[in-house]
């Protein structure tokens, strides 16, 4: 477990499974949260190297979760990728304002996501 840690906040199990399988063969460690509140708690507890944040989440939205994470000094600089299935215009802008480093619209290609992860957080 010497690799870098990635936190994935997503309520949909198949989507979590895709990322889990995608990262299985890499050196990244994946930790998962099922809703916004849990996501914030895990981010503050584990201080991951990268956070993948779904926007449509139960309890508190991904936007709110990102704002809270950014508000904490420990995670203020952590790169975050906002993932949305709505692709509504303005979402990217809103995500950036909430603190996202990058933005990915669903449906995304898993390999594109991997490319993005590697760009933001080189494996070695």
């Amino acid at each position: 477990m010497s690799g870098k840690t990635i936190l994935y906040v997503e309520d949909n199990e198949p989507n979590r499974m895709i990322v889990r399988d995608l990262l299985k063969r890499t050196s990244y460690n994946l930790i998962e949260a099922h809703d916004g509140e849990a996501g914030v708690a895990m981010a503050l507890e584990h201080v991951p190297d990268l956070i993948l944040m779904d926007i449509q989440l139960p309890k508190i939205s991904g936007m709110e979760a990102m704002r809270r994470i950014r508000a904490n000094p420990a995670t203020a600089q952590t790169p975050m990728v906002a993932i949305t299935s709505f692709a509504l215009s303005g979402d990217e802008q809103k995500a950036k304002e909430a603190g996202a480093t990058a933005y990915l619209a669903k449906p995304y290609s898993p390999f594109d996501l991997l490319k993005l992860i590697r760009k933001l957080l080189p494996e070695t």
């Binding site: 949909n12 198949p14 989507n15 499974m17 895709i18 399988d21 995608l22 299935s85 709505f86 669903k106 449906p107 995304y108 290609s109 898993p110 390999f111």
Partner: peptide, 16 residues
Amino acid sequence: HELRTPLNAILGFNEM
């Protein structure tokens, strides 16, 4: 939106 969530998974898994 509801249709796209499972389709996203189908396309993701298939691509992998």
